[in-house]
Design a protein around this nucleic acid. Sequence first.
DNA 1: ATAAAAACTAAAAACGTTTTTAGATTACAA
DNA 2: TTGTAATCTAAAAACGTTTTTAGTTTTTAT
Lengths: 329, 329
Amino acid sequence: MAITLKDIAKVCNVSYSTVSRALNNKNIRPSAKMDEIRETAKALGYSPNVLAIQLVKRRTKIFGLIIPDIANPHYSEITKCVEDVALEHGFQVFLCNSDWNIAKEKRYRDLLIEHRVAGMIVMPVSDESHVLFRNLDIPVTLLGSRTKESSLNTVVMNNEQAAFLATEHLIKKGFTRLAYIGRRIENYTSSDRIRGYKSALQAYGIADQAAHLIHSDSFQLEGGYTATRKLLEQPNRPNGIVAFSDFIAIGAMQAVEEAGLVVGRDVGIIGFDNVLYAALPKINLTTVTPSNKELARKAVEIIVEQVQEGTKAVQNDLLPPKLIFRSTC
Amino acid sequence: MAITLKDIAKVCNVSYSTVSRALNNKNIRPSAKMDEIRETAKALGYSPNVLAIQLVKRRTKIFGLIIPDIANPHYSEITKCVEDVALEHGFQVFLCNSDWNIAKEKRYRDLLIEHRVAGMIVMPVSDESHVLFRNLDIPVTLLGSRTKESSLNTVVMNNEQAAFLATEHLIKKGFTRLAYIGRRIENYTSSDRIRGYKSALQAYGIADQAAHLIHSDSFQLEGGYTATRKLLEQPNRPNGIVAFSDFIAIGAMQAVEEAGLVVGRDVGIIGFDNVLYAALPKINLTTVTPSNKELARKAVEIIVEQVQEGTKAVQNDLLPPKLIFRSTC
DNA sequence: ATAAAAACTAAAAACGTTTTTAGATTACAA
DNA sequence: TTGTAATCTAAAAACGTTTTTAGTTTTTAT
């Protein structure tokens, strides 16, 4: 069906290896024949079969990106950055949606290996899934997650510092009865942030109210909403909330307003990630985040470097967070 | 490096074609040898080289999805649906971000052809880009866009009906000085919607104010914001706005509020697409959309059918829109 | 003019599979 | 036993490239 090198060779009356060399401009000198070959290829609509090329070269210019949910703006924004940076390096991205499901994550891992991708960037479902990616014979970078697996590259925001900054900001704005709405604790990201939160409390001599450390039962708005309602019912209710994500923070905003309080005046709220939502004028959420582009760049460049140089030295990058000042505190 | 059929064959003392048959369970009868082969494959960590399989079978179970911007929730939500449905059919998705750039769209088209994908689903940058996809020898479905190219499948919401419904809803809610904020007019989606808008005006005997048909200079919030400010400055300012997208609608909401008016009371606003943003409690935008899942399902199933049956009959599907009632009108 | 060197090209091998073909073994009947 | 059919397996061809090898032509120097 499709035109191959042999078809072109036949028309131009040369061997197909010559066609290959002509089209790749390799080990061949400029000549009329060469031009003819090029023109014939174009005229016949030749499109090289990348499958065959990859097979014989034993490498692809593709890497896999495994994320939990492409419909979540946090991940889709990072995906976009990863794609951009990959393209700069001439790589394609094979996108895989794990759907917060560790079994699916494993299936995609195997699929990517079968496709002989050059490397993988993974935003893991949980810390338990790290083990899936150790000791593969292609480079893997964990994005947004520290790990105890020593064979994995990591690129992650400095979560402890981020939580410290967030908490400190609330305190400096005068919100001193603080609460933290988090996720499950058995997770580096969570525990790092809680550590940062607590060390800010300590640094500013603020009482650490155990009852104000609460876990949202979902990542969605509802989780933040429910958790905040519980917080507001407590005696000595908090007036400052550090939320694990912007979504949780937005849910918290809703609960605060429903309680007849004004966000940013009666209750300060700060989130993480700076998703596009957070910038909407009607939300205008103060938040803390690293640069997504930098995060993506680091992750991609580690892979590209290890692929191209064949090096194996594991890299662990910790990126500094930045505060995005808006109106919720 | 990686284990191949030959390695397994050597260990088990059979030819590698037998290993292939054993692992695929094809033309072979159950036997101890067969079990041995399977176990050896597993023990050695055999992972079939999909590149080689695709080459010899001359087909892939992958199709390309070209979209303008993965970071835009409208597209990322559709992407997710496409991935889900593809997976149901055992297909993988090769995601390409055209970045609203027709040159990039063309590059991705070529790339996908070189990768010998089974088909493509395209959400085109503009109506001009349709020509890029005609008469390829793989099936192509245009998603969200009608076309005059007769070789292309299309799956699209009934835009005329959608705009009619949206406009009618505003009218029935009592907003009768209407405006439409659109995009460039040389585009089926735009012109279909404008037709629906105008026929609703006519059906309800409402004057069609030419000055109230305005084009946003961007898809972003700012476009809707600026357009709405212009509208509100007009004598006999409109009190109902049909916005081309939820983003434009959200920008419009901001302009309306800044003018000291109350959205949903003084000015009704309705958008298109029902992006997640629109559902946020603080936005709560009334909007009209088809089911993204249905849209994706149709698009994928057309491709799958044409790939598997080898049929070529072009399909053009028009999906009904649904109104999502919220508080902006 | 001839030999050696240089430069090029054609042919062949390789990549890792599936599938076809041909050959070998087994089973069965005469 | 022997012939035939049935069943299985090994070998070979194919997929479409790149790259190596070996061979041929051209160039250069003597």
